[in-house]
């Protein structure tokens, strides 16, 4: 197929630059590695970091899965898949287990990932401390000297005001006992999946021009306090399609009276679960 563009859009020099950065990022788990991000034909904030990371690692033999909010068929996921179909002509799948490469926005699939898979997260804001300290010059120092009191104070204040940490998504984690890391806007429900995951986790922030990584088998701990341990979300309801009580649920308003239903956010998991239960 002739596209008029290089395989995976980026020129080889750009890919090499990103590849070198990815390797350094893996060597320093959770550290935000600056990279010379390029403008992509998709808008900043819509996954350009993830797309650049994926474009730098993807090959002919890969099978790609792209999800947004856990679903394979949401518009932005479809748009990103179409981009890679156009510039790489590679295989696409909805099945988590079949994919060699998974690009995601806001979720980690419910199906456990294995060591032959790579998950690429789209990152809107790589700096977990940014809301507490707007200056990059300062946050870089805080990371350099592992000076994280600011974050602990913030969480503690939430507990004293609300009785618990009120961060429900992008809940900060500590990677390999060193860097406080932004897990991207995944629900905190997904945080435990990051701990000791067998798959390589790569994070691309296009606008902010940062890449970070969590190697396989790496300790990832959600920040908490002894008397207020980290907890994930739970529902009283189950998925109204597959009946799952273990997956993250989306709430759907089904009539004008505000009656609601709950369904799995992970569409592939929901489908597999339904098939299994038949």
């Amino acid at each position: 197929m002739k596209t008029g563009f290089n395989f995976a859009y980026l020129d080889e020099a750009t890919k090499r630059m990103i590849r070198r950065k990815i390797l350094k990022a893996i060597c320093i788990p959770g550290y935000q590695c600056p990279f010379g991000g390029r403008e992509m034909p998709l808008a900043y904030g819509w996954g350009t970091g993830g797309i650049q990371v994926t474009a730098s690692i993807i090959g002919k033999q890969d099978i790609l899965k792209v999800i947004d909010q856990g679903a394979d068929d949401t518009t932005n996921a479809v748009s990103i898949k179409n981009f890679f179909k156009r510039v790489c002509n590679i295989m696409i799948t909805d099945r988590t287990a079949e994919a060699s490469l998974i690009q995601t926005r806001h979720r980690i699939p419910e199906t456990t990932l294995n060591k032959d898979q790579i998950i690429v997260y789209q990152v809107p804001q790589p700096e977990p401390l940014r809301k507490l300290e707007p200056k990059e010059k300062e946050t870089r120092k805080l990371h350099a000297y592992k000076e994280y009191a600011l974050m602990h104070v913030k969480l503690y204040e939430e507990i004293s005001q609300f009785g618990s940490v009120i961060k429900t998504w992008a809940y900060p984690v500590e990677t390999n006992n060193r860097y406080i890391t932004d897990p991207t806007p995944i629900p905190k429900f997904d945080n435990p999946k990051m701990n000791n995951m067998e798959a390589l986790q790569l994070f691309g922030a296009g606008r902010e021009k940062r890449i970070y990584a969590i190697p396989p088998y790496t300790k990832v701990k959600s920040l908490d306090f002894d008397d207020h341990p980290f907890e994930i979300q739970t529902w009283d309801e189950c998925c109204s399609i597959c009946g799952s009580t273990k997956s993250y649920l989306d709430e759907i308003i089904i009539n004008n009276e505000g009656k609601k239903n709950f369904i799995c956010s992970d569409t592939d998991f929901c489908k597999s679960n339904l098939e299994k239960n038949k």
């Binding site: 900043y44 904030g45 819509w46 909010q69 856990g70 949401t74 998504w169 992008a170 979300q233 993250y248």
Partner: peptide, 21 residues
């Protein structure tokens, strides 16, 4: 423009978290 308009993208997973909370 990219980051401002990305707010148009679905955020229902995160919003669900906020609703629960």
């Amino acid at each position: 423009q990219g980051f401002v308009t990305h707010l148009k993208l679905p955020h229902y997973v995160d919003f669900q978290g906020e609703l629960n909370l």
